[in-house]
């Protein structure tokens, strides 16, 4: 599914990722944990194609393609989805318009006709229910005036409709209270299947109580310094990151 080899990334000549290697197979859920400044968000941005990052070394292969060569919208249409840490507010563009435009862009890319308006509404409404959202959200401007929890639910709603192959969750738990965290996690869990892979970026172990990862990685100073099973997250919760940070050098 995704193979990252020796990835080096800089922002304004400042190295952030310094040789990151990671392989994700179809259906696997990987969690990346790490202290602030380790490069977690840089990784999610580079994978989704945000401007401002320079890849100085290494490669990212996604389904046999060089991911870094693809424009952000092509990555999205090929099935890479980033759930933003800070979803952007877009006044004047309704949620339902964005969902439809995005779905149709994807369908066109794959040679499919535009989605039928009635079918679309049926699909969207079922997903809205799944995420325990009010249908009114569909007709409001994208994320405008949404609470933190509503924004994160909205991200998962988009994922549920676009049905990505690789779902990157960037600090999806940040800013959520326990109830919102539970709803968002249930949404994510409902998307899990044998083909779909997840890369969860998080600072805290808390999210992993709700979404059980197959593999946990620790990212420190731009590299994966330790990988293990779910039990690694518990160890991190207890001991912090400092005992691992030395290993990055």
């Amino acid at each position: 599914m995704l193979s990252i080899k020796n990835l080096h990334v800089s922002i304004n000549d400042k190295p952030i990722l310094k040789g990151l290697t990671l392989d994700i197979n179809p259906g696997e859920v990987h969690a990346i944990m790490g202290p602030n400044g380790a490069g977690k968000s840089t990784l999610s941005h580079v994978l989704s194609g945000k401007a401002g990052y320079t890849v100085t070394e290494g490669s990212v292969t996604y389904q046999g393609k060089d991911l870094l060569e693809l424009a952000p919208e092509i990555r999205a249409r090929e099935g890479v989805f980033l759930a933003f840490q800070y979803p952007v507010e877009i006044p004047g563009v309704s949620n339902i318009y964005l969902l439809k435009a995005a779905l149709n862009a994807m369908r066109k890319h794959h040679g499919l006709p535009e989605v039928d308006a009635m079918d679309f509404l049926t699909i969207v409404k079922s997903k809205v229910k799944l995420l325990q959202m009010d249908e009114k959200f569909l007709y409001r401007a994208v994320n405008e005036g949404f609470s933190g929890g509503e924004k994160k639910r909205n991200e998962i709603l988009q994922a549920a409709i676009l049905e990505p192959k690789l779902c990157i969750l960037d600090e999806t738990d940040s800013g959520l209270d326990i109830d919102a965290l539970r709803i968002v996690s249930e949404g994510v869990n409902s998307l899990r299947n044998a083909e779909r892979s997840f890369l969860m970026i998080t600072h805290y172990q808390r999210l992993l109580d709700y979404i059980k990862p197959d593999v946990v990685h620790v990212l420190a100073d731009g590299k994966i310094v330790k990988s293990g099973g779910p039990e690694l997250a518990l160890e991190l919760e207890e001991r912090g990151y400092s005992w691992l940070e030395g290993q990055a050098a």
Partner: peptide, 18 residues
């Protein structure tokens, strides 16, 4: 806002349309 343009791109919408 470039972050808005990127947000739409990340949902599969090309830059000019965004």
């Amino acid at each position: 806002e470039e972050k808005s343009v990127f947000y739409l791109q990340s949902r599969g919408i090309d830059e000019a349309t965004a």
